[in-house]
C-alpha cells in the first residue's frame, strides 16, 4: 500500500515537472522571447586599472585627493556621502590642520542653542559629510523624479565596481541610430540621457563631467581631462566604499604567510607521525621500493651464504 502511494506521489512530481518543462519549451518555440533594446545595446564596463587593485594593491593618495576634489566640486551638488566623516580623510593623506580646514568649509545642520530653531554651524572633523538635499522628496523634485543615490558604497553596490562608475561617467552619447531603427518606440524620453552602461540605457543623471579642465587640479597633477577626472573620482569612490581596503590586503598577506607555514609544518608532522603507522596498514606490493630493497637485501644475504 505504502509503496503504491509512494509511487504515485513520485509520479505526480515527475509528471508536473515534465509538463512544466514541455509547456515552457513550447512557449519558447512558438513565441521566442522578443529581443529588447537593453539586451542588444547594454554594454559591459570598460577596463579600469587602479593602484588599489589586486592582492598587493595600495592607495594612490594623490589620485584619491584629486578624486575627492572632483566629488566636492561636481558630484556633491546632487549626491550625498553620508557614511564618510571628515576625520576619515586622514586616510587620503591630509593632516589634522587640513582636515579641520576642510570640515570648517562645510555648514552642517545644528540647533540654535538659544532658540532651539534649526540652524547650521561650521563643521568639525567628527562630522559626516552633509547631504545636498534635506530629504528624498527634495532630491527627487530637483532631479526629474530620480533620486541621486548616496555614493559612499556605490562601488560595492554595483556589479563591476569602479570600472562601472568610470564607464558610466564617460559613456554618455547620442542614442545610436541602429537602436532607433530596430526599436523605434524606445526613444530616450525627455529629461533622460542615453548611456549604454546604465542597466536600462536611459539615466536621469545629466552628464556630470562635461569638459576638460572642469576641475582645476593643483601643481604636478596630470591634465584634468574628462577621462582623468572620471578615473580619479572612481578611485576615490573605491576608498569611500572601503577605507580599510589596504589594511585588509596587508593583513591578508601576513595571515597567508602564517597559514602556509603552519600547513607545511603540520604536513611534516603528519608524515612523521604516520610513518610508523602507514607501513602496517597495507603491504604495498612487490614493486614498492621499500619492498624491493628488502628483497634485494634478502637475496644478497642468501647469495652470500650460498657463495
Amino acid at each position: 500500500m505504502v509503496r503504491i502511494i509512494a509511487f504515485f506521489v513520485g509520479l505526480g512530481f515527475a509528471g508536473v515537472l515534465l509538463w512544466s518543462f514541455v509547456v515552457n519549451l513550447y512557449d519558447n518555440i512558438t513565441e521566442p522571447p522578443a529581443p529588447t533594446a537593453e539586451h542588444e545595446f547594454h554594454r559591459e564596463p570598460k577596463e579600469l586599472h587602479l593602484a588599489s587593485d589586486g592582492p598587493f594593491g595600495k592607495w594612490d593618495k594623490a589620485q584619491l585627493q584629486r578624486g575627492f576634489q572632483v566629488y566636492k566640486e561636481v558630484c556633491a551638488a546632487c549626491h550625498s556621502l553620508e557614511r564618510v566623516a571628515f576625520r576619515d580623510l586622514a586616510g587620503l593623506g591630509y593632516n589634522e590642520a587640513e582636515i579641520k580646514a576642510i570640515a570648517k568649509s562645510y555648514d552642517v545642520p545644528s540647533i540654535n542653542p538659544d532658540t532651539g530653531e534649526p540652524a547650521t554651524r561650521k563643521g568639525i572633523p567628527a562630522d559626516y559629510f552633509p547631504k545636498p538635499y534635506a530629504n528624498e522628496t527634495a532630491g527627487r523634485a530637483a532631479n526629474n523624479n530620480a533620486y541621486p543615490p548616496d555614493l559612499s558604497l556605490i562601488t560595492k553596490a554595483r556589479e563591476g565596481g569602479a570600472a562601472y562608475i568610470y564607464s558610466l561617467l564617460t559613456g554618455y552619447q547620442n542614442q545610436p541610430t541602429e537602436l532607433l531603427k530596430q526599436f523605434p518606440d524606445v526613444k530616450t524620453p525627455e529629461g533622460l540621457h542615453y548611456n549604454p552602461y546604465f542597466a536600462n540605457l536611459n539615466i536621469a543623471m545629466p552628464k556630470p563631467i562635461v569638459s576638460d579642465g572642469q576641475v582645476t587640479y593643483g601643481e604636478g597633477a596630470p591634465a584634468a581631462t574628462v577621462d582623468q577626472m572620471a578615473k580619479d573620482v572612481s578611485a576615490f569612490l573605491v576608498w569611500t566604499a572601503e577605507p580599510k581596503l589596504v589594511n585588509r590586503h596587508r593583513a591578508g598577506m601576513a595571515v597567508l604567510i602564517f597559514l602556509i607555514m603552519a600547513t607545511v609544518l603540520g604536513y611534516m608532522a603528519y608524515q612523521n607521525i604516520w610513518a610508523s603507522a602507514k607501513r602496517k596498514v597495507a603491504p604495498k606490493g612487490p614493486l614498492d621500493p621499500d619492498n624491493q630493497a628488502k628483497r634485494e637485501a634478502a637475496k644478497a644475504e642468501a647469495g652470500g651464504i650460498a657463495g
Binding site: H249, L256, I260, T263, Y267, A269, Y270
Partner: peptide, 20 residues
C-alpha cells in the same frame, strides 16, 4: 595530525576569500 594540516590548508583557501 591528519586533521591538523588539512585544517591549515582549508583555512588558507578561506583566508584568500576573507582578505582578497
Amino acid at each position: 595530525a591528519k586533521d591538523g594540516w588539512f585544517v591549515g590548508a582549508f583555512l588558507t583557501v578561506y583566508a584568500v576569500f576573507v582578505f582578497f
